[in-house]
Amino acid sequence: MKTCTPIFLLASQASFWFRFSICSLIVTLGGRKIVRCGNPSGREENSKTMDAKPQDVTGEVTMDVVRHLERLAYLQLSEVDRASLVGDLSKVLGYARSLTRLDLTEFEPQTHAMDQANVMRADDVQASSTLEQALANAPQAASPYLQVPRVLE
């Protein structure tokens, strides 16, 4: 029997799952169970935080840019990582510059390899993961809950 666990799904759904996963956490906090619905950071300032950085289009990557990307990507780096990323990202983006300068407006953006759209299938009920399976790989759990750090101030 195949179980259908929503762990490795399609890219288009990845960020959805990230949000969904956080939304659906049931959090144990000081003995009280709180159902948290919403974004992990309560990103009201979403549009602002998604800005890569105020800088000119030469795409020079500075230490400030790296620190900012670190926050966007929820990725804590060491000082050594940061220093090497300043150089590496500049190099890779510099390499990509020949591409960014071309006029490609005649080509429609293509995000997928194949021209498949609206793939439908019968909406029949199938077995899914059990509670035990869903918690099996959790770093910390107290069935039927996942335990996570506090999310409220």
Partner: peptide, 27 residues
């Protein structure tokens, strides 16, 4: 980490058109 950071940069506001979208046109 390098690829996550590169991807985050290329998808971020103000750069998505210049990098990600341009790449999808080239694709």
């Amino acid at each position: 980490k390098r690829r996550i950071m590169l991807g985050t940069y290329a998808l971020s506001h103000g750069y998505a058109e210049q990098y990600y979208q341009q790449a999808t046109r080239m694709r």
